[in-house]
Amino acid sequence: MHRAVFLDRDGVINEVLNHRVKFVNRPEDLHLLEGVEQAIRQFNEDGWKVFIVTNQGGVGLGYMTEDALGEIHDRLMDLLGASGARVDDIAYCPHMPHEGCGCRKPEAGMILDLAETHDISLGESYMVGDREPDISAGRKAGTHTVFIGSRKNKKVGADHHFRDLLSFSNWLVNRRWT
């Protein structure tokens, strides 16, 4: 079995809700956060599988099509690949908020499906997010949980808190397993 890092997309990998972009509905709206390429490359080099699990209710709400979302993810993979970073797979929930599906975070469906498909040991893996639903999904799936961000309200119940993805990757790859 493999160990993995499951990453939320918006707010962990790319900018969202800031001066440059509100939501990522087109490929040109995608701007990586500082240090993301290096962080993901460190995970890759240390033998971690890397997955993205992202709620994309904009599809269900009609703000973008699944084809447009595919183009956004193609751009993401191109940007990461240009710096030698690799994501092993991307899972997304296209359903509208409050639709009641089992894949939309805070449910664990995307994580569980990826774990089954890629032979992942959830107890040795991490779910990384910047919001409470990400942390809840990780807990329900049985992963360790990591909250990313500098928000003052960190009462999301995560196992670990880091300023950004690079801070977490530095910690994880330098950690000595016993």
Rank of each mutant, 00 (worst) to 15 (best):
G109Q: 06
R20G: 00
D119F: 00
D67L: 08
H31L: 10
R176T: 14
E124Q: 14
G102F: 07
L32A: 10
A137Y: 07
F51K: 04
G35A: 08
S169R: 06
H31S: 09
D29V: 05
V53R: 01
N44E: 09
E124C: 05
V59M: 10
I52P: 03
D10V: 10
M64G: 04
W177Q: 13
L172Y: 02
D134K: 10
P133T: 13
I148S: 09
E107I: 01
S125Y: 02
F168E: 02
H98W: 07
E116D: 13
A137K: 06
L112Y: 01
V5Q: 08
L69M: 14
R41L: 14
A82C: 01
P106G: 11
N153V: 10
S136P: 00
H2Q: 12
H144I: 02
N174H: 15
R163Y: 07
V156S: 09
R3Q: 15
D78M: 09
R131M: 14
G84Y: 02
N170L: 13
L79V: 12
V50G: 02
C103S: 06
L61I: 06
Y63G: 01
D29S: 10
I13H: 00
D134I: 12
D88F: 01
F43K: 06
V87D: 02
H95V: 09
G100M: 11
V12Y: 02
L166D: 03
P27Y: 03
H19N: 13
V128C: 10
D74K: 15
D10K: 05
I148Y: 06
V5H: 03
M110L: 15
W177P: 00
H95F: 05
T54C: 04
T178A: 13
F168H: 01
D78H: 12
G62N: 11
L69K: 04
V87Y: 03
H161V: 14
E37Y: 00
W177N: 11
G81S: 15
Q42R: 14
